[in-house]
Computed example of a mutant assay.
Amino acid sequence: MTISPGARPVPYTGSEKESLHTSLDRHRDAVLWKLGGLDDEQVRRVMTPSGTTLLGLVKHLASVEYGWFCSTFGREVEPLWFDPYTEDMAAGPDETTARIVEFYGRARAAADRTISELSLDDLGTSWNGNTVSLRWVLIHMLEDTVRHAGHMDIVRELIDGGTGDHRPS
């Protein structure tokens, strides 16, 4: 997945859906940017007592994008090669950086199709049986992505001193 320099701004007068989607995309791009220029050892380096790694966070975000945007609304999800409830925060030795980044790209594309095809008021059923709107899912995924992008900011700074929320233009 190619990320353009800088971050696309959230439109000042855009619709609610456009603004939420653009904001989510900005943080999705930041997540991938945090991997840029690092080698395989660095993206897997454990930097916290909880075992957090940059690559593990990308894998987690991919699985939850599929779960919230696709499973919730009865859309196709690619078969996962791991248990999303116990193995989504860690990257195994057989899981390459490219494989996980491509997985995240496919999850984003599938989520984007759902966002494009549904209205904010369309309803789905979450993994725990709750009825949720696309609006709620967009807000939830924005919160989750921003939270983990913040984790990635700290981990990246600990690895090589790199800081910032988006690649400079």
Rank of each mutant, 00 (worst) to 15 (best):
T2K: 11
T2G: 02
I3T: 10
I3L: 14
P5H: 08
V10A: 02
T13H: 13
S15G: 15
S15T: 15
K17T: 07
E18D: 15
L20G: 02
L20K: 07
H21R: 13
S23C: 11
S23E: 11
H27S: 02
H27C: 00
D29R: 10
A30L: 08
A30H: 06
V31A: 15
V31P: 04
K34A: 02
L35E: 06
G36C: 08
G37M: 06
L38Q: 13
D39K: 07
D40W: 07
E41K: 13
R44E: 01
M47C: 13
T48H: 02
P49V: 15
S50W: 07
G51D: 08
G51P: 12
K59E: 04
H60F: 04
H60Y: 02
L61A: 00
S63A: 14
E65H: 05
E65Y: 07
S71A: 14
T72E: 03
T72W: 05
V77T: 13
E78R: 12
E78G: 02
F82P: 04
P84A: 03
T86G: 04
T86Y: 03
E87P: 03
D88T: 14
D88R: 15
D88S: 15
D88L: 00
M89R: 11
A91I: 00
G92A: 15
D94P: 00
D94L: 07
T96C: 08
T96R: 11
R99V: 08
I100F: 01
I100H: 07
I100G: 10
V101T: 15
F103V: 00
G105E: 12
G105F: 05
G105T: 05
G105Y: 06
R106D: 13
R106H: 14
A109G: 06
A111L: 10
R113L: 14
T114W: 05
S116D: 15
E117V: 03
L120T: 03
D121G: 09
S126L: 01
W127G: 02
N130A: 12
S133N: 09
L134A: 07
W136A: 09
V137K: 10
V137A: 12
L138N: 09
I139W: 08
M141T: 08
M141G: 00
E143I: 09
T145L: 03
G150K: 07
H151E: 13
M152I: 07
M152L: 13
M152C: 11
D153G: 05
I154L: 14
V155M: 08
R156P: 01
R156S: 01
R156G: 02
D160A: 00
G162T: 15
T163C: 06
T163Q: 12
G164N: 02
P168V: 02
P168I: 02
